[in-house]
Each structure stands twice: as C-alpha cells, then as structure tokens.
Amino acid sequence: MKPIVSCRGITKVFGKGELAVHALRGIDLDIMEGDFATLAGPSGSGKTTLLNMVGALDHPTAGEVAIDGQPLSGMSKSALSDLRLNKIGFIFQAYNLVPVLSARENVEFVLRLLRVEPAERRRRADEALAEVGLQGMEGRRPSALSGGQQQRVAIARALVARPRIVLADEPTANLDSTTTKELVDLMYRLNQESGITFLIGTHDPRVMEHSKRHIEMNDGQIESDTRG
C-alpha cells in the first residue's frame, strides 16, 4: 500500500546561530490510507511544526515531504495552495471558521474555490453538515454556534471536498469532556465508515483512546509509533 503522506529526514530549524530552535530533528513518517493516527508529546515537542510540514503550510529546512507520492519541494506557493485545496482537510484548534460566513457558507467556501456548481455546492455542504449533526443550523454564523458546533462545522468543511487526509491540531482543546467525546466519536465514525484518513495532534487522552495508531514525539523526534 502506498502512503498518503511520507516524510523523509525532516528537520526544521527556526532562527539562526545562537537563537536557533531545532523544532524537528529528522522525522521519518508514513501515514497510510485509512489511518486514524494521534500525534502526542509534551509542549514544544514539535507536533504543530510537523503538522505544518505535512499540511504543505510550511517548508522543512531539510528532508522531503511527499503527498500521494508527489514531493512538495520545488512547488510554487500557488501550486501548494491547490494541493491543500484538493488533498488536505484542516481542523484547527480555534477560530476555525470565517466569522462573516454562515455555517453553510463556510463549508461551501472550499467548494467555491474548487469551482463546484452552486446547486451541487449547496447540496454537498448541507449533506456534510447533516453528517456532522448540524441539520437546521446551516444559516447560522459561527458566533451563534457553540464551540463544539463550530468544530463540527470545521469537520464538515474539512471533509466536504473529499480530501486524502484530514489534519487536526488540538481540535478539542477548548471543549468540555462531553463535547470532546462527541467530536472524537464523530471523527472516528467518519474514519470507520468512510475510510477517511486522520492525523490528529493532541494532548487529550480521550482522543488517544480511539486511536488506531499512536505517535509519540519528544524534542523534535519520534519517540514511539505504535499501532493497536
């Protein structure tokens, strides 16, 4: 089986000389189709930095990231934008949604960038929102939704364009335990039923409970990578 994401010898250094921070120190990692992987580790261990590399948001200092077998180095910013649009769904910790757009418009946004026809766009957005349990709230702005509901919209948006992989960085950080459980169950169900690949950076044990694969980072390196 070919990996969706493959990282070879990734290092990332912020700053120069005395002040240089080695955020990643040689990461080799393959994310396989259907993985529901959690990425854990102490604060500052490099989880977010690694997700940035995998999500084509930032360039590694050295090493190579490939998505679907396509190496990212040498791609233009515009091509990277297109790649994110087509292959990667993102769920961030907070302020995930565009505040001036309704739930439906937030989900539709990605489809608009992909130039999907209006009717089709709307159908798929409403379908995705229904999938995450937000039927009847399509017209609400983010400010009129709870934190959990906002993250559901973010999940719907991450999924609506059928990406190859969904990257989430601390998606439950601001949520209470009931909401966290609901959200994790939702992502897990989507992974089980639709085979969507997830890579989730998290501190939260309730998220890790479900993981089929657990990656532990420390000081910019992968300490353990266990399936179970």
Binding site: L57, K77, S81, R84, F90, Y95, V98, L113
Partner: peptide, 11 residues
C-alpha cells in the same frame, strides 16, 4: 483569519 483562508486554499 488570513492564515486560515490561505490554509484552506486561498491564494
């Protein structure tokens, strides 16, 4: 927010 838009595929 601009970061978000860019991450989502905004050029």
């Amino acid at each position: 927010e601009f970061g978000l838009l860019r991450a989502l595929g905004f050029k």
